[in-house]
Amino acid sequence: MKPPAFRYHSPRSLPEALDTLDAVGHDGKVLAGGQSLIPILNMRLAAPGHLVDINGLTELAYVRTDADGVRVGALARHADVEADADAHRAVSLLRQGLRLVAHPVIRNRGTTVGSLVHADPSGEMTAVLSLLGGSVELARLGGTRRVGAADFFTGPLESCVEPGEMAVSAYFPRLRGRTGTEFIEAARRHGDYAMCGVAAAVTLDDDLRIVSARAAYLSVSPVPLVLDLTETLAGATPDTAHWRAAGELAADRTEPDSDIHATAEYRRHLVRVLTARALRTAAVRGADPAVGGDGQGSDDQGSDDRECGARD
């Protein structure tokens, strides 16, 4: 298991990187964290002629949080995003999802933007971006474009990044209102790709009645699936909501595939169970300002570190 030969490029600046990517076109691939790409190369499942290593572009190693959300640069490692206190306060779903990305050592190297470009339907960050309605900024020689999550993922392991293009950042908008979030998975082993994962966001009104309930799924669809489940929960409070009905609705709307770890039927069952669990936790978080929902209604004091704390 040794990678095939390739030409290596290590640009010192973004313009230089874009120049190189433009020159190598279809035959080029961006190397960021490499935690998904290099196993594929080692197994010789891919053989790009050129690798453009952006690990020298330290100007892209940023996590910037403002009133509207969190912008993550192409060279920000998962671990950096996970540990970023401002990002966590603004978009706690980020840390909730990141702690489930493989293991800490992988998160030390792997990049959040890279995992989006990899577009693995089992990738946690694809679900986070999709649920939040975030976007990815793509740059190429002579221009940039911003692609929303709904258009960014085009198929299993396929994103809309074109030859010559490079994802330079991802944007995770802050959820508005009194909103709580949760990210849970059922995986065979801790750190494995999930058999099913659910990112949930529940928004409450000032009377703590549910006004919106949405969930994004991984491992049950070829591209990240976002479901609006509000119809089953609207008007209920976290105490009275019929979570199971929301789970049933979600299960009805998913068509998972089977693989060696889980049958389609079991995955759909997990959608049912995990949806109910995730929505309930998200709603409870949204209702309790001390726990810290994403929304404007919550204050900053209660980062749920105890439950979602970064390790390592």
Binding site: K2, L31, G34, P39, N55, A79, I106, R109
Partner: peptide, 27 residues
């Protein structure tokens, strides 16, 4: 394993543990 799962190849890069089978030496 050379696919990043087992962890036997872990070294510290600038103090942070990383898989050396998932990095190129030149990087």
């Amino acid at each position: 394993c050379e696919h990043g799962v087992c962890g036997a190849c872990t070294v510290q890069i600038d103090g942070r543990p990383m898989r050396s089978c998932l990095m190129f030496a030149v990087s």
